[in-house]
Design a binder for these strands. Sequence first.
DNA 1: CGCGGCTTTGATGTTCATCAAGTAAAGTGG
DNA 2: CCACTTTACTTGATGAACATCAAAGCCGCG
Lengths: 237, 237
Amino acid sequence: MDSLNKKSTKGSVCECKECVLRELMSESFLENESKYVCKSKIEKNYKKGEVIVYEGEEINNLICIKEGLIKIYRTLNNNKEQIISISKAFDFSYLLNVFSDKKFNYSISAIEDSTVCFILLENIKKMIYKNGDYALSVINKLSFASNKIINNFLEIHSRNLSGRVALILLFFSREIYKSNTFVLPVSRKEIAELIGMTTENVIRIMSEFRNENIIRIHTKEIEIKDNKRLELIMEKG
Amino acid sequence: MDSLNKKSTKGSVCECKECVLRELMSESFLENESKYVCKSKIEKNYKKGEVIVYEGEEINNLICIKEGLIKIYRTLNNNKEQIISISKAFDFSYLLNVFSDKKFNYSISAIEDSTVCFILLENIKKMIYKNGDYALSVINKLSFASNKIINNFLEIHSRNLSGRVALILLFFSREIYKSNTFVLPVSRKEIAELIGMTTENVIRIMSEFRNENIIRIHTKEIEIKDNKRLELIMEKG
DNA sequence: CGCGGCTTTGATGTTCATCAAGTAAAGTGG
DNA sequence: CCACTTTACTTGATGAACATCAAAGCCGCG
């Protein structure tokens, strides 16, 4: 397995409140079992830019982003990349086709330094099998995450280019960094790949926003100066 | 509940091989339980055009398309409709946000005469809770269906307009009707809403295909005369 | 310090939406 | 069943939105 040949910590105790494993702890599930699964997990660190999962790779593990930021993407026939989702720790977008296919039909890479847990899928399935509450919890997460991806897609593609750029800037500001000032974790090209437009137009529209004093740009550093106008552009776009 | 005030048959025995309930039958699950749930289901018939589920309605039932063809769609602020998916019986696209939200965030209507089962969601959840195999089966279906919708979206929106129209014609021909000749179950406007373009351009491109002898059109009746060229247009589009 | 990738701006062309106007089909009420 | 209304379909002309192409500055990295 390509994605696992790097140094890793094994068997540390699960301490993440929102971890897919941790879900169990509060339940009536056999303590022994959960500890066993917890020990089987592998935790690894990835630097910005490193690939966590390669498209086409066999799905043996359920991955869980413990810390950081990742992008889920696919490579098209013309060698261009299409970004499906950018997600932070514990939002479970990365469940996608884990429970229905043999191989990943997308890649995942870190766009900020990230910590990732790998848990044998077989063990997760065993837990689902044995524990009803856990099963319901996984179903809920899966449903929520898929639905969010679909919604994002609809939101993005029902807008014109200015609306899309406004949307993505507000996404980073509100959902990811919770601040008006932030450092873009992705290139202009990647933004283009995420919202379905060309790099040049991403830049052009960001420049317009800057000229109209809606945002401040210092290469990767962005400050949103006029939230209301940006929101207006997003809504009417 | 709006969608249930019409005549319906109650308590008939489940006979659909692929039914979400039927999954249980072959398992070691208590016979009594499954019979109980089976009796609680409501089966209804819808004519082409009738709405099965209204956006915003509370989710009390899991719905299951037993026969026919449906569209899942959303109404945008500008009163335009956006079709998320067209699906046939037992493809479970209609699971969408059933397990993660309180209300449907989309509508569902019949685009061909359809038979639909309503099963109390509480009962389904009970079965998931009690039966591990059933839980894994639901997770598999949910994952598969969501993934398919996302894939379709990526496929459609990475193509130009001709490519999209070719894609949708081949979709109806191959996945739905399994024939080169079929009657379109939707209007040109609905095709446009499904693949994100204007009605005029759907018509224009279909006319082009006709002029180039790739398809034959008699209002709603379509015959694909040159599969290879249509496929080529789909691929390069 | 020079190379390649990222960013930026401008000029140009293509694709697509919009508007308009007419025809065909389908539903509606007398 | 027919006149009437409404809705769906079709084609053309126009303009706007967007992609593509080109060129130059910037930045990080070996």
